[in-house]
Amino acid sequence: MNKVPLTVKGAEKLRAELEELKSVVRPRIVASIATARAHGDLKENAEYHAAKEQQSFAEGRISEIEGKLSNAQIIDITKVDANGKVVFGATVEIEDIESERKVTYQIVGEDEANIKEGRISIGSPIARALIGKEVEDVVTVKAPGGNVDYEIISIEYI
């Protein structure tokens, strides 16, 4: 399986979720199953079935996170020599040339992307257009509504 890029913060967030699932959620579900079993007949016991469903979801998420972390290539952007170019993990301020609207995005892994928080996936059209470019370069992004030209205003590696 290919290595999946992940920022240091993204890896920390996944590890924290994994720890929460293993140390808090899993024991709570086991206790719920034990309580439901004590109520008797399991065939018609809605509490038992709900707890088993929660357990299945939690165990699936634990496996998913462990898999992601084992295949992750954790990139610390503060230690990357980018030579002024846009790279994975960089925070880039761009300006739409036509509307003069400025936006700032950090380029992150698929699992970390959240447009509301200004984090876009490395696989997104904007990120793909920005990778390898420098300040003052103009990039054209193919958007559903047509091509959009952006100028790179600044690049930060934080």
Rank of each mutant, 00 (worst) to 15 (best):
N2G: 09
N2K: 14
K3G: 08
K3Q: 14
V4D: 11
P5Y: 13
L6W: 06
K9M: 13
K9P: 12
G10M: 09
L14I: 06
A16K: 15
E17F: 11
L18Q: 05
L18M: 11
E20Q: 13
E20H: 14
L21K: 07
K22G: 12
S23R: 14
V24R: 06
V25L: 07
P27D: 08
P27R: 08
R28M: 14
S32T: 03
S32E: 13
I33T: 07
A34P: 00
A36W: 05
A36G: 10
R37Q: 06
R37Y: 01
A38C: 03
G40K: 00
G40Y: 01
L42Y: 02
K43V: 11
K43R: 12
E44F: 05
E47N: 10
Y48S: 04
A50K: 08
A51T: 12
A51D: 11
K52E: 13
K52A: 08
E53P: 02
Q54V: 07
Q54R: 09
E59K: 04
G60Q: 06
I62F: 07
I62S: 05
E64N: 03
I65N: 03
I65Q: 06
E66W: 03
G67N: 14
G67L: 06
K68C: 03
K68I: 15
A72T: 08
Q73P: 02
I75M: 12
I75L: 13
D76P: 02
D76G: 07
I77R: 04
I77M: 01
I77H: 02
T78M: 11
K79R: 15
A82V: 12
N83E: 15
K85Y: 12
K85G: 07
F88W: 11
G89R: 05
A90N: 09
T91L: 01
V92Y: 03
V92C: 09
E93S: 15
E93I: 13
D96K: 03
D96F: 00
I97V: 15
E98V: 12
E98G: 05
S99Q: 05
Q106A: 15
I107H: 04
G109C: 14
E112C: 10
E112G: 04
A113I: 09
N114T: 10
K116F: 09
S121F: 05
G123M: 05
S124Y: 02
S124V: 04
I126D: 04
A127H: 02
R128H: 02
R128G: 07
L130S: 10
G132V: 13
E134I: 11
D137C: 04
V139Q: 02
T140N: 00
V141N: 04
V141E: 05
V141W: 03
K142G: 01
K142H: 03
A143E: 01
A143S: 06
P144M: 00
E151P: 00
I153P: 01
I153A: 02
S154Y: 00
S154M: 09
E156I: 04
